[in-house]
């Protein structure tokens, strides 16, 4: 898959600013530490702060993964609600659909973790390209089983 690889290589190079962002993040907790957590408003502030942080600090590629994960969660929730309302008559079909979203969500989360530069020390042996190839392999297996199971 040479085109994929070409997509990937700038991505890895773009992860170097992310690395810079992590160092600032590590230093960050010292700055807003004057916040008190006694009231709910401060909790609100904290959540806002986190969100702001997320929007500014997260690289574009990771945001894309997060958007995909949010979409998967939404699809899974929809399927579940439909199953609750209508009933689970072809149970295997419901299971196949639901577990495909869950499995894909989990695999995407794994990819996000493996390509996160903060986790470099955890995944010494896995480069970003390797993580992506693993992700494809896992997804292929998952979808083979789902399609087989849905009849």
């Amino acid at each position: 898959m040479p085109p994929r690889k070409r997509e990937q290589t700038p991505a890895t190079s773009s992860s170097s600013p992310a690395k810079a962002s992590t160092t600032t993040q590590a230093a960050r907790p010292s700055t807003p530490s004057k916040k008190t957590t006694s009231s709910s408003s401060s909790a609100q502030q904290i959540v806002d702060g986190i969100w702001k942080n997320y929007v500014t600090k997260t690289p574009q590629r990771v945001k894309l993964l997060d958007a995909f994960m949010a979409f998967l969660a939404a699809v899974g929730a929809l399927q579940f609600v439909y199953c609750v309302i209508v009933g689970n008559f072809p149970f295997n079909a419901f299971l196949a659909g639901f577990s495909s979203t869950v499995g894909q969500f989990v695999l995407t989360a794994s990819l996000r973790m493996q390509t996160n530069p903060e986790n470099r020390k955890e995944f010494k042996s896995i480069s970003d390209e390797r993580a992506f190839a693993d992700f494809i392999f896992g997804s292929m297996l998952l979808h083979f089983f789902c399609v087989n199971f849905i009849n």
Partner: peptide, 22 residues
């Protein structure tokens, strides 16, 4: 707990459970 554990266990469970249900 580490990211490694998350990756390995969730992958195993998601695919393995589907595989066993075949």
């Amino acid at each position: 707990y580490s990211a490694r554990l998350y990756v390995s266990y969730t992958t195993w469970y998601a695919i393995g459970t589907l595989a066993s249900m075949q």
